[in-house]
Design a protein around this nucleic acid. Sequence first.
DNA 1: ATGCCACACGTTATAGCATAACGCAATTGA
DNA 2: TCAATTGCGTTATGCTATAACGTGTGGCAT
Lengths: 132, 132
Amino acid sequence: MAQQLTRNQSLVLDVLTHAEGPLSAYTILDKLRDHGFRAPLQVYRALDKLLEFGMIHRLESMNSFVACSHPDHHHHDHGVTAFAICEDCGQVTEMHDAGIEERLSVLAGREHFKTEKTTIEIRGHCQNCTSG
Amino acid sequence: MAQQLTRNQSLVLDVLTHAEGPLSAYTILDKLRDHGFRAPLQVYRALDKLLEFGMIHRLESMNSFVACSHPDHHHHDHGVTAFAICEDCGQVTEMHDAGIEERLSVLAGREHFKTEKTTIEIRGHCQNCTSG
DNA sequence: ATGCCACACGTTATAGCATAACGCAATTGA
DNA sequence: TCAATTGCGTTATGCTATAACGTGTGGCAT
Ligand SMILES: [Zn+2]
Ligand SMILES: [Zn+2]
Ligand SMILES: [Zn+2]
Ligand SMILES: [Zn+2]
């Protein structure tokens, strides 16, 4: 049941899918000027929908967006995601781990805190940029 | 060995310490106009130093800042911190857990990723705002 | 068909967050 | 004394995100 995307949504997703790393909304805008994009809202509205569909992720620590690295895009449901973000090359690795999820759940429970959304972002250096 | 703060740094820290919840840089600026603050940089420069000293934390998911909840401020060193942020009342709870730290370390190691800084932010509803 | 509603879209303007670049003053340390 | 460092103040600018308005289209009940 692949989500049917509008033209704008497809264009934005395409840019993110083919990008080397995460992109800011304004960078996406620039890349789509040739396709008729003129204003930030055209990008932000598409991004909002794509986030809702679970096809992209927002990286809070750098105000930018990245295509979900899963082969399919059926994961409205995929649980907590941890992102490893290389400061050097910008590469983003999406990680899932039940242990983390469990541990965070315990921590939240201890505070009687009802979790809605969890952000985990690890900044550092990837294997390629370390070995050199 | 309490860090000696400049006037601006003290003022900013004081505002954050007495705040109910996290504050944006511009909100801090407004609160300090009576004390002579006129420009954002006066705030941002103080914030940078306070972050460096480990006296405050930056909440990436909301572009705002909060005083460290530890009684002392000696923790340039305090490891990974997880923040529980209430969407309703803005209350922030600072949590530390060796289990999380260990698990994230394993995840990073699996990718041969060298971690510099880890952000964990849990958005949701605190006990007070849930029980009502 | 007519009216209504929901939704995507386009545009302009504005709000909110952060830093560049300049110069001055006080402090430190050789 | 001289240089280096650090904090400070100011102006200007850039980057990120949303408000508010109006248009057009498709679905759907009357
Ligand atoms: Zn994903
Ligand atoms: Zn890299
Ligand atoms: Zn702390
Ligand atoms: Zn609350």
